[in-house]
Design a binder for these strands. Structure first.
Length: 559
RNA sequence: UGGGCCGUCGACAAGCGGUAAGUCACAUGGUUUUGGUCCAUGCAUUCAGGGGUUCGAAUCCUCUCGGCCCAACCA
């Protein structure tokens, strides 16, 4: 990340620049990412993480990771570990500052007592239904709770009893005393604590009252000395309340700034939809390479750098937006083009016999490992009489723009020879079974000593030297750009792409790839970028296609 | 509908009163032993729309239109 181009200006940086100029926060910048451990992280979270992290880093500030674990009924340790793992991989560094909201439960409780003592909070004993009914609506004011004027003494006693487990779930709540007629619904005596006789993944059964987001979040930020609390747009309406609590308490008040969350087209990003895909087995787990989860993208072959660059390109603003998936693809191609070693691999093999090549001869030919990186060197690739080429690289009756192999045509076999197709052998079904070709010995290495040109260069593999592999091809998960905007009566599940996963079983690879370990990334020349899946073994290699190469031929065919 | 926020190229997004950056996508041409990469060129006379202020407006004022968020004891 150190070498990434300097960050773009955005409205948050403008605010911070101004704050620094005015000497606010003693010139410090301190941000945080506060996930609730109730699900897995996806590319949208990567934006929140990276916006907070890179701003802290660029201003020589600090970045905290804090689990907002205030609701034990939804949270689990399993998620904590997965989230930590994903953020580490992404490259955001919280150093030693890993916190939990539950670490502050005692302090939050004390603050609540303080608020009761200044008459700004009370115990409400209405039912949830009554509270809802009395909150009013968006256009009509709410009405005060009948319990709103309990004495401070009574509130204090009740609150302590709540804490001590003397009441059942739902029988009482602690509420802030603000204004039931506020046009901002969140200011109509918001709830601060509810009773939940549920054990918490960290505090066990120590507590049976748990703080609610609006009460807890500002306190968490304040306690940690956060200066800029960067969050998504839907919290805009919460900001007055965030401020109100901290002002009443007279404690450090971070500045909450909201920005638009990331949306990607042709996929789903909501917790609910992702969960449905996983639980109903539309995909194979949270790390399915088709999912936009961080674990899925990782398994798909994305690098942290690619995601960082992607987020940087996306920018930070307040307008709702849906980013084109092509930008994500561009981001990973950009990284892999520079770094991925090239290799020849045949996904859909077609046998080629070089009829004028000596029967038992094998030549070791030099192949460049990465044309973008001379230091990657070269390797030897065996060439022999029987080869495989890609089925798609031959057409018996080629259209005008098809440059590849056809009857009577000459092409270059990369790093090898000029090859001419003389005969097409078919099976009883009329299916092309193999090609009989001749080679030009003078063109060794793929050079053209007489200046003769060919229009195509194909990849190939020596039949006896190649190894078998399984290759998994991925396509977009959803066939429509935006699942939040569907035809009447349809759900996103009606638009799941049935061809989002294609498993190829008879693929051929260069032999040295048997040793590649899970996570190894390379380019299959002319096909795309691929990586070794965790399912892979030396006996049965499994590769995932991360992304295809840009393919102008495929685009022409579509027209 | 009360309140809050937002509307600049197909998708993002700079711009902060001095005459529309950049990226992706797309198109065309060049280079090329990957139909990849790379290079070059093109792609908003106009900023949701109207009115106003100004020598000058995407930027300021105003009205209209459109979108999103808020009525969980979720975060």
């Amino acid at each position: 990340m150190e070498n990434s181009e300097k960050s773009r200006s955005n409205f948050i940086r403008d605010i911070i620049d101004k704050d620094l100029l005015e000497g606010k926060n003693n010139g410090k910048v301190h941000t945080r990412f506060p996930p609730e451990p109730n699900g897995h992280l996806h590319i949208g979270h990567a934006k929140a993480i990276l916006v907070n992290y890179t701003i802290a880093k660029d201003y020589n500030g600090k970045f905290n990771l804090r689990f907002d674990d205030t609701n034990p009924v939804k949270e689990d340790e399993e998620y904590v570990n997965a989230i930590i793992n994903d953020i580490k991989w992404l490259g955001a560094d919280w150093e030693e500052r890993l916190f939990y909201a539950s670490d502050y439960f005692e302090q939050m409780y004390e603050y609540a007592i303080q608020l009761i003592k200044i008459g700004k909070a009370f115990i409400d004993s209405q039912s949830a239904e009554e509270i809802r009914a009395n909150r009013g609506t968006i256009t009509s004011p709410g009405i005060d709770s009948p319990f709103r004027n309990r004495s401070i003494e009574e509130n204090l006693n009740l609150f302590e009893s709540m804490k001590n487990g003397e009441f059942e779930d739902g029988s009482h709540v602690l509420r802030a005393k603000i204004d039931m007629t506020s046009p901002n619904m969140l200011m109509r005596d918001p709830l601060m604590y509810r009773i939940r006789h549920t054990s918490h993944h960290r505090t066990g059964d120590k507590w049976c009252i748990y703080p609610i987001y609006d009460w807890a979040h500002g306190l968490e930020d304040s306690i940690e000395g956060i200066t800029h609390s960067l969050c998504s747009l839907e919290f805009q309406a919460h900001r007055p309340l965030y401020d109100w609590f901290l002002i009443q308490l007279g404690i450090h008040k971070p500045q909450q700034i909201e920005f638009a969350r990331l949306n990607l087209n042709y996929t789903v990003m909501s917790k609910r939809k992702l969960l449905e895909l996983v639980e109903e087995n539309y995909v194979n787990g949270w790390d399915d390479p088709r999912l936009p989860t961080l674990s899925g993208l990782r398994r798909r072959g994305f690098t942290p750098e690619a995601i960082q660059n992607f987020i940087e390109k996306v920018g930070v603003a307040k307008a709702h937006s849906i980013i084109d998936y092509a930008l994500l693809e561009h981001s990973i191609r950009e990284v892999l083009n520079k770094t991925a070693p090239r290799v020849m691999s045949v996904l859909n093999p077609l046998k080629v016999v070089i009829t004028n090549y000596p029967d038992d001869q094998v030549e070791e030919l030099d192949a460049v490992n990465n044309p973008e990186d001379p230091s990657a060197g070269t390797r030897k690739v065996p060439f022999s009489k029987e080869l495989y080429i890609e089925r798609e690289d031959f057409m018996e009756d080629p259209p005008k723009k098809f440059f590849r192999l056809g009857p009577g045509r000459e092409v270059r076999f990369r790093y090898a020879y000029f090859i001419t197709c003389n005969e097409v052998i078919k099976d009883s079904n009329g299916e092309v079974k193999e090609l009989h070709c001749t080679y030009d010995p003078a063109s060794k290495g793929g050079k053209s000593p007489d200046g003769r040109k060919v229009k195509a260069t194909l990849h190939w593999l020596s039949a006896e030297h190649a190894i078998d592999a399984e290759v998994r091809l991925y396509d977009r998960l959803i066939t429509v750009p935006d699942t939040n905007n569907l035809e009447e009566g349809k759900t996103f599940k009606d638009y799941i792409n049935p061809d989002s996963l294609t498993i190829l079983h008879n693929c051929k690879l260069e032999a040295h790839l048997a040793k590649a370990e899970a996570g190894f990334r390379c380019q299959f020349e002319r096909l795309g970028y691929f990586c070794v899946d965790p399912d892979s073994t030396p006996q049965k290699p499994v590769f995932n296609r991360t992304v295809t190469l840009r393919d102008t031929w495929a685009r022409m065919q579509k027209k």
